[in-house]
Structure formats: C-alpha cells, structure tokens
Design a protein around this nucleic acid. Sequence first.
RNA 1: GGGCCGUUAGCUCAGCCGGUAGAGCAGUGGACUUUUAAUCCAUCGGUCGGGGGUUCGAAUCCCCCACGGCUCACCA
Length: 516
Amino acid sequence: MNDARTGERHWADREAVEILQREPEAPVVETGISPSGPFHVGHLREILTGDALTRALRERGAAARLVFIVDNLDPLRKVYPFLDAGVFGPLVGRSLCELPAPDGEGRYDEHFLRPFLSALGRLGVDAEVLPASELYASGRMDEVVLRALEQRDLLARIQQEVTGKSLPETWSPWNPRCPACRRIDQGEVLGFDREAGTVRSRCRACGEEAEQPIAGGGKLTWRVDWPARWKALSVTSEPFGKDHASRGGSWDTGARIAREVYGMEPPHPVIYEWIGLRGQGDMSSSRGNVLTVGELLEVVPPEVLRYFVLKARPARAITFDPGLPLLRLVDEVDNAAARGRDERALELSRAGRFRPVGVPFHHLVLVGQLAGFDAERVIALLERGGYRDLDRGAVEERLVLARGWLERFAPDEARVEIAETLPDAARHLEPDQREYLARLATLLPDLEGASADAIHERLYALASIEGGPGPRRAFEAIYRALLGRDRGPRAASLIEIWGPRRAAARLAEAAEAAAG
RNA sequence: GGGCCGUUAGCUCAGCCGGUAGAGCAGUGGACUUUUAAUCCAUCGGUCGGGGGUUCGAAUCCCCCACGGCUCACCA
C-alpha cells in the first residue's frame, strides 16, 4: 500500500488497516438490519460496507468474519401502511419473528429476509447470518444480559447522561416477553436470579407475572443490546448509518457502555450516509414505493450494484438513479477500457463470474427492442453493427436484464415504438425532406427482404443526391414519419424489421400529409 | 437547537496524514457512407464557498463565517 501518496487507496483499505491495528488475527465485522419491511437499496449500504471491509481484511491475511444480525426480536412498532390493520393491529408489540407474513404464508421476518438473503448470495456477500432470536436462544447472550441486569443503575446513568433524558424508576435494560400475550415491549422486570439464569417479570399489558429463562425469554433494549452484542461476539468493527451517529445517539451510549460496563473498546466505527433515490420519487417504505434489491438484480448485474455503493466513500451521500445514469454504471463495469472507472472499487465489486458483453447496455436495450428481445436476432443485428466475437451466453443473460430495465425504468426516450398512425411530427417537414420521403417510398417496396446494409445504402445514396436533404435531415424525416421523433436507432434496421413495404406506405403518407 | 456530511471546471465527482489542481459528461474544432446520452482525435475551461491562522509552501492542517443536504423516537 505505498500508493497512499497518489491517493489511490480505497476507503475500505484504509479502514482495514486501522481495524488490523486493533485486531490483526480474527477481526469481526458486524452489521445488522431489522426485518420490519422490504429490504431496499438503502439497506445495501449497511451490508456492502461491511462486506468490503471484510474483503479488504481478508486480502491482508486476516481471518475476518462478517456477521449479519437480523433483528427479528424487535417488536412490531406499529401497523405499517403495507400491512392489514385488522390482522396486525392486535399484534403490535410482538417480536417480528413471532408474526405471520403479510401475505399469510410463513413468518413475517422470513418473508422479508428470504429475498434479501438470496440477493446477498448473488451479490457475492459472504456473511454469517445470525437472527437475534437464535443468538439469544443459544444462550450466548446470557452472560452479557446478566451483567446488564446487575449494572442496571450504571446503564441508566450512562443513558441519562448521554441523552439528557431521564428514565423511569422501573426502567430495565431487559425487555421480557410475556408468555401469555407474547408482547415483548410491555414487560416490567421484577427481579432476576443469576444462578438460575432467569428473570421475573410482570406484563403491563395483560398483568401476567412470570419467571423465565434469559435465553428465549426476551431481549435487551436497543441501546444496551448493541454493545452487549459487541461483547458477546467480540466485534471489532461496525458500520452503521448516520442516524445512530448523532450526538446522544445509540453510538454514544454504546461506546460508553462498552467501556464502562463490558470493559472493552467499542468497535472501529464506519459511519455511512444514506442512499437517496432519484427518478422514481423518493424512496419511502411507509408509502411502499421502495426499490428492493431483488428488483434491481432483475435489471443490472450484481457487480453494478456493488460498484455503485463501494465506489463512494461511506460518508458521502449518494443518489441512486435507476434510469439512464444506471446504464452508464453498467458500461463502466462491463467495459475494461471505460474511462473514469475506479479499479479498486471494481475489484471489490466482484460477485462471482462476471461475463462482459462488450456492448453498451443502452445499445442492447435498443437492439433488443428492434429484435423483440429474441437472442438470435439480437446477435445478428449486433454483428451487422460491427460487434464481433460476442459471448453468446453473456449476451443472452444481459438481454434479460435489458428487457427488465426497459419495462421497469426506461424513460420514454429510450423506448422505440413505431407509431400506429402517422405522428403529428411528420407533418412538419421541409419540401426537400418530403421529396426525399416520397422518392424513398417508391424505392422501398423493391427492397422487401433486403438486408439492413442494402437498405442503408439506398437511404444514404438517395439523401446525398443533388437537391437531396443530406443524410442528417433525411434521417430526421424518416424518424418523424415512423417514430414521431427527430432521432432514433439505425433507420435501416428499423425499416428492415418493420418491413420495407409497410414503411414505404408510411413514408408516402408522411410526404403527402406534410405537403397538404 | 445539538450533531454529521458537504461546498473543487457548466454538470457529476476524484484528489484532502501539505509541495501552486484531475477524470467523466457537457462545450468548441476536426474525423467518420453518423444516429435515440453515438464513436474516435484534439481543445477550451477552475480566485479549489468566504475570511483568518500555522508553514518556506495549503484544495489538503487549525479557527471563524456563509450556504446546502441530512440526522437527532430501535426506519440503513
């Protein structure tokens, strides 16, 4: 890493070096997300930041682990807009892992987690997924929980000092789950027994009193849970969103608790900014219009999503635009000769076997439309356009994505559709353009079945004759007649695919309409 | 109000453990039997938000200010 001077060092490398100073052998990177709703692009930053760190650590010879905690013990806080109030209203306060899925099939947490995990697999994220429910049930948290119960007063003091807010007398770091009504957010701790490893509690909701084992009987409150996990799992680094980072936030309390209660240095923090969304309106899980990771993988290769996130320093807010800008990103990843690409970020973006296509994504979208997304015809068109040595399988794969992008995110300009009837734009043509179309219309029927190259010859030759409109304006006239726009894909291909005879009729119609 | 991040060419950004600025896109010129951000070559383009300070020397370090975004109920 002697390139510090040239500034080519990636943020993940810099952080890795610092983490290794603290734990050179087996650093543990922890990340975590609450499965209360769909996982979207924003969540990607949490896990990918952790993944990049882990990779950078492993490259340096460390036996780094990436632990992904699923906070499925968290209670359902309210009835989210995408939930049925009748079903979920009465279930508020229960752990996410004890709720039915929104569609009624299976478990709530798994409903949201499953697609995310499969996306992670495709993204090449090598993480140990650990649901909080299992972490607690395993007993691995018992000791840190007992310590918290014993240090209740100290914890309360720290929290009050850091947040400036007072806590009720009955506050406890432990949230017991009521064995009767299953709520995990209403319990009041009455006492605990270190020898037996149990907690006595009463439920404020239903009044039930019980004595339950720590393992499986509840969870720590978030602010204590976090540092307790650091201790229990020997966490050495933790990426987290800036919401936790603000003054008086959970990082501040967590860091103190780590030192004063658990006698450890808090993990090396990596604070990241948020990912905004452009093009589809702001992302808002409450409105339900989120971009899920799975959705995006139907549109671009996983490497592109990784690259998008890893290219920017975590502290930098970035905006995700699934429209045209996303395509640029695809090309940057696909084309080894692309300028301005961040090689190191790209290296960290590998997600398995990436098959470059060598055709700009936007062009593929275009050709795909012309050829009805039929792989054979697409490849024929591409070859005619000068692309050689195409990796057939890679093209086919990418073509599926191109189609997905077109259907889901393409702006109108990217769509090629031959107008059903003569477009209005075709009425505005100069005399020489009209003349051109009229003459072309008489030639085209003879070209039925001809190759696009042959057709192009004629288009071009006719445009260039004495008194002709010249290529540029000739093509403009054709596009107006067929698409109602001034520009378009290779006119010859368009005509070949639509059929020269049909095109001829349209061009003649345009020539006439413009004259009248 | 507290805090975090940002303010570098028209746009998006890199550079930031100091040595008088870079890329992509846009623009301009040219090439091309040019076609939906086209490609290739060349080129124009910056008082590095403002003001102080440290230093032989600062976009890079320190302080102050302005503007912008975000965040402060366990929503990454």
